[in-house]
Amino acid sequence: MLAFLQTNTPIVIFNQIVVTLLTVCFLYQVVFFVIGALRGEVAPPKAKKLHRYAFFIAAHNEEAVIANLVRSIKDQDYPSELIEVFVVADACTDNTAQLAREAGAIVYERNDLARKGKSWVMDYGFDRILNEYPDTFEGYFIFDADNVISRDYVSKMNDAFDQGFHVVTSYRNSKNFGSSWISSANATWYLREARFLNNARNICKTSCAVSGSGYLISASVIEGMHGWQFHTLTEDIQFTTFCAIHGIRIGYAPAEFFDEQPVTFKASWKQRMRWTKGFYQVFFTYGKHLVKSTFRYHRFAAYDMFMT
């Protein structure tokens, strides 16, 4: 009896309650995993229309990689006249702007040292594009400078976009899977995120989540904001949360792009600390709105993001 009381102290009981509660709350992700494993990848029907797109790339001192991405965009099996590439060279001290132009991109050079960060670069770039190319594009792809896309990327994304989604995300693969156990672990996580989360969410007709880069946004969304209004450390999660609250369903397409993953534990730790701070920013800004959207409007996507 004494042993039982010693092992069931208030803190142990509290921990057991918390573990049980979290298990119940996250059980739906087990369902997603099973669905992703059994149903395979989604395959949207071929698009009835070839839409016109712009690629948006924020770049800071990326002369080593920027041309590779622009060339992979220019080499798509999609009509080249329906694709334009914009690079915002942000406070660069190298040849990023020149190499991007030589590869075929339209380049804007920005030197605002007071408002640093990708989100402010996006706000600046979208504002210029909307003013200089009004009513030209139907959607915008968001990419980081170190990415490279597969040759059928735009075609697959266009198939999903043509189904009526305002936002579509894709599959982030790794450029350096075997560089270290850190890069391998990151690549495995993104495989899980694509196949067993976003793919399953799409099958279940709930909303997916965008992650960093490799996603497509309808021009109507960008035009509504006339730029980019999400400025936390994790603007991608902030945007996803905004969509979940307002009932904007994010779709998924098995279109593949390749991303550079951290190789060292130090680099990975620094990245994740920034993400953690960003998650707190989003939670304290949108937490009550997620709860309201979950219970009042019965939006499962809001519950999903609250758990995230």
Rank of each mutant, 00 (worst) to 15 (best):
D259Y: 13
S268D: 14
H166K: 08
N198P: 07
K266Y: 07
A267D: 13
Q261I: 08
Q229A: 04
T276R: 13
W269S: 08
G251A: 05
N173K: 14
D162A: 13
Q271W: 02
S183G: 14
T276H: 12
Y215W: 13
E256F: 07
N202I: 00
K277M: 09
D259R: 06
F161Y: 14
F279E: 11
S213W: 03
V221C: 01
R201D: 04
Y215R: 02
T234E: 03
I245F: 11
W275C: 11
G227Y: 05
A253Q: 07
A253S: 15
T188C: 12
S179H: 14
S174M: 09
F239V: 02
F258L: 10
C208I: 13
G278Q: 09
L191N: 14
S268L: 14
G227N: 03
A185L: 11
N176Q: 08
L233V: 01
G251M: 05
F258I: 06
T285S: 15
R249S: 03
K205Q: 13
R249V: 08
G227K: 05
P262S: 08
I237H: 11
Q261R: 14
W189M: 11
T232M: 01
E256R: 11
F230S: 02
S213E: 05
I250E: 01
T240Y: 04
G247D: 01
T206Y: 04
A267S: 06
Y215C: 04
K205V: 01
A255H: 04
Y252I: 07
S218Y: 00
V282N: 15
A244M: 08
Y215T: 04
C208Q: 07
H246G: 03
G278R: 08
L233Q: 10
A253Y: 03
K270C: 00
K175A: 15
K205S: 11
I217N: 01
S207F: 01
T188H: 09
T240R: 03
I237M: 14
Q271E: 06
T169N: 05
K175G: 13
V210C: 03
A253D: 06
W189V: 10
E235D: 12
Y252M: 02
G178F: 09
S211E: 02
R249I: 05
R195H: 15
L216Q: 02
I237N: 09
F239H: 07
Q229M: 07
G224E: 12
I182G: 10
C204Y: 00
N186H: 14
T188P: 00
R272S: 09
T264C: 04
F265T: 02
G251K: 05
A185T: 12
E235Y: 02
K270Q: 10
G178Y: 13
K270N: 10
E235A: 01
W269L: 10
A209Q: 14
S211L: 06
L233R: 15
G212W: 08
E223N: 11
A187R: 06
T169I: 04
F265S: 04
G247I: 00
G212D: 05
N176H: 09
S184Y: 12
N186T: 08
H226I: 04
V282D: 15
I217H: 00
V263E: 09
C204F: 07
F279T: 14
A200P: 11
S180Q: 13
T234A: 07
A200S: 15
T234D: 12
K270A: 12
S179F: 11
